[in-house]
Amino acid sequence: MSTLDKEKSLAALRQMMVIRDFEETADKLCLRGKVPGGMHNSSGQEAAAVGVMSALAPDDVIATTHRSHHHTLAKGFTPKSVMAELFAKSTGVSGGRGGSMHLAGVERGHFGGNGIVGAGVGIAMGAALGIQVLKDKKVSVGFVGDGGMNTGRTWEAINMAVIYKLPFIIICDNNQYAVETFVGRVTGGGDLAKRASGFGLPSFNINGQDVEEVYKYTAEARERALAGEGPTFINAVTYRYYGHNVGEKGQYRTQEEIAEWRTSKDPIDYFTGVVLERKFATQQEIDDMRASVRTEIDEAVAFAESSPEPAISTITQGVDSGKLGIQL
């Protein structure tokens, strides 16, 4: 359980490349006004998303945050369907009604991104309760950012998961900045795993730039959850290369800091090295992989561009069943 085999390693590397190319491409499109309402770029945070998803079964549940393109792609949604949702087109994962912050596919275990900090953790905890009530063998994963570590409801949800021993994993996708506020400035006690451990669950601070480390801790958490041992908290420390939202020109961190993470801690560069060292692929095969990803993202953009808008006539459709007034 500690390392990824060849097949999973190559899949993980390609998935990280998909996320990076998707985000770099979407960022430029967003600046050109193609993404209504803007978006939150997850470049730099690929390993934390892909590592978690590599340890999950396809029908495990996730719920996530406003920054969730990487989670959604890693969960197995196609770049086409995610890009189309960023464009708010009818072919998007949420039919164009969600947009960048509200990517979802509930029937496939994606209980949604969320525009409200900390809300996804509660929804994922509720899904874990549903799994327990219906006696299924699955787990639910709630993603939260470092900003969401300081909203009360995150800890309400964690406490509830502990007392009910829910099959639940909390991943702090810790990119170290709550919008423009460094996590260390606003986090009492500083150590998030230590804080979580006070709630009585196994809690870990891990390197979120190493896809294998994220995979390993998630896989172990999943085993505990399936064995009825309750939830686990994982603080995956990572870094976002871009601003909180597209086009942001923040003065809250130095260019040197960003450059250091990009050049010495990049999750894709790092894991490419691992794959080459283990001879899971040649440099040529990696170059080919990157080229195929480029094509896939180009196709996603073309798909999103050419997709139809949702019909205006549907603006009040699907609010509720409309059946409450019918005699049963």
Binding site: G126, L129, I131
Partner: peptide, 26 residues
Amino acid sequence: FDRVKDSPISEAAMVAAGMGSAMYGC
């Protein structure tokens, strides 16, 4: 007691628990 659960006084988590489990099939 599996079907009538005592809860901590955590209203946000209580409603979230209901919402997530409802989405799941309860």
